[in-house]
Design a protein around this nucleic acid. Structure first.
Lengths: 334, 334
DNA sequence: TTCATTGAAGTAAACGATTACTTACTATAT
DNA sequence: ATATAGTAAGTAATCGTTTACTTCAATGAA
């Protein structure tokens, strides 16, 4: 790389015949500078093609304008882009405010996650947005001196702000809709109950059935690792219990399930009604298009960004819970 | 935020009764330090819960271990996750090497893109990976003093390394396969020819037809903004020209097109054979599953990360073109 | 005329690491 | 005994900003 010496604020100051303090204040608008002087400084900056060194700035001002987002971004084989969409929402807000976003992948694995967290030191980031991989991990001791906001899920003893989807309400609504269609044997297919998100959905399902005076039938409930294959095979198993409807809480598993149904020419919704989670692209082009609970993923990111930005501004961490409502998207699979 | 004073290398040095230089060398392994002293330093670091300040480190060492990825990440309404998948590939390599990734969205818009580039100053990032929004923009003057690698596409007068998909070869192979099935009237649906990627695909299509001794029929060719709606409506228009097969170069448009075909109960591949681009999730669950050209998006990211990391190591920018081969995934739509 | 006030800009000490240069000591060769 | 080389670690300048504190001149009041 060419050893171009960097143009510093000092060079600008010399050229404009002012002090570095003045240059800095012109750049940041942090104190009054006469128009005349401002002009001189601006000219000097242009002539020298000055670019501020944000690292030096961060060091001194203790602000980096960088926020980290830690989530299972690259997770499963059939990549789950849910968090990417969330990230897009975060990004859209930060961008406007002049912040940068660092994306980190936790692989939904506590160790990888902890390692990532310790890679961020307090000076490097102004805040952290995290979708915790585990419920029982003492995150507090890992965090540095910056605001933290949990997104999508929270650990057991949550001491921070959180922005979540109202999973239980959404699930209850969906299951109720299924009941309203006259179904009694409603299967439930889901990922492991190791994150609050899944637990809430599970509770929504069981509570709704119980409220309707139905017995819970364990053989209609399948919980397993999230994967296409798992969705596919579990669908086969569940079908033997003769359900008339199925509710799938994860879109990757749902895709496996739908593929199974398609491979075996099961007519939807006649033979089996299907309701899924997440309004991902493919749900619109299946035959028939899938009825789903749509999580406002982008909005989730937007809200989270807003919350963390405010905390950064205030200079304090908080412990507020924000819930976003999901939408029930009616298509033809129910 | 609590005004916790940060533990610095100085505090560690004092506690361990050594100099800051020694502490630094212990941390970085940059010169020999006796085991005894190393021990003292490590103990002191643990006792004080020392975390290195990477900002100060960057300032002095002129290395940030941050690489930026600038691409149309959040692009269209029906979010196109192609670049997210590429980012995942980049990320997987960087993570191993202790680098961080900053994701920036260009919105495929030159102005937004230029603004983003100028937000990165030379100290902040060690390298830039960019999918240029435009062919005719003088990027060189915008870049700072770091290696740059173009990904997926290149601008007109490319002076940098690039990592690309061999679009032309892939397209030729695909179109040839369509011809081999006996089709003569092959429609072509694509996004604007404003990026090299699309141009190469267009050339692949025309050349293959010409090589086969067929006349090019402009009425079978549709080029327009990338969107679901555009895919949908263009599919309708094209159908009037009675093609027996269609090649769609963009997955968002393909989704629109497939939806049109499904809505109008066109039998695939009997009435119309379809070949798409990108092996995105939904192509596996359409009826029938779509035959596509699969771009090794994750691998593209991996390769790019490797290239830029090497340039950073070498300290020089280069101008090499790397091409990755795409795969033809045969499913039932052809 | 003198002193206080205000306005505009300068001085220099941080921020927390890295690193070129120097030092102090030990061991070996002459 | 002295010069020489080698080993382990210390000193302090430096990276490029921000910012608390100071300065200087001009203005107006007494």
């Amino acid at each position: 790389m060419t050893e171009k010496k960097n143009v510093s604020i000092k060079d600008v100051a010399t050229r404009a015949n002012v002090s570095t303090a003045t240059v800095s204040h012109v750049i940041n608008g942090t104190r009054f500078v006469s128009n005349e002087t401002k002009q001189k400084v601006h000219s000097a900056m242009n002539e020298l093609n000055f670019r501020i060194n944000s690292v030096a700035r961060s060091l001194r001002s203790r602000r980096s304008y960088i926020i980290a987002f830690l989530a299972p971004l690259l997770a499963s084989e059939t990549s789950n882009f849910y968090f990417m969409s969330v990230a897009a929402g975060v990004q859209s807000v930060l961008k406007q405010k002049g912040y940068h976003l660092i994306l980190s992948d936790s692989s939904d694995n506590v160790e990888a996650e902890n390692k990532e967290i310790s890679m961020f030191d307090s000076q490097m980031i102004d805040g952290l947005i995290v979708a915790p991989a585990s419920r029982d991990c003492d995150y507090e001791q890992l965090f540095g001196d910056y605001p933290v906001v949990y997104i999508d899920r929270v650990p057991d003893h949550c001491e921070r702000d959180s922005v979540l989807i109202d999973n239980k309400t959404a699930t209850k609504e969906a299951v109720q809709k299924i009941l309203d269609k006259g179904h009694q044997k409603i299967a439930f297919l889901s990922g492991p109950l190791s994150v609050t998100t899944t637990i809430e959905r599970y509770e929504g399902y069981t509570e709704t059935l119980m409220n309707a005076g139905l017995e819970l039938d364990d053989s209609l409930i399948r919980i397993g690792e999230v994967s296409f294959e798992n969705g596919y095979s579990n669908m086969g198993d569940l079908l033997e219990m003769k359900p008339t409807a199925i509710f799938v809480t994860d879109n990757v598993m749902a895709m496996g399930a739908m593929t199974y149904l398609q491979d075996h020419s099961i007519r939807i919704p006649d033979q089996l009604a299907v309701v899924g989670f997440d309004d991902v692209q493919w749900t619109r082009v299946t035959h028939p298009p899938l009825t789903v609970i749509q999580q406002p993923s982008f909005q989730l990111g937007v809200k989270t960004a807003e919350v963390i930005l405010q905390r950064i501004e205030e200079g304090i961490s908080g412990k507020e819970e924000h819930r976003l409502q999901a939408n029930f998207i009616v298509r033809q699979s129910l």
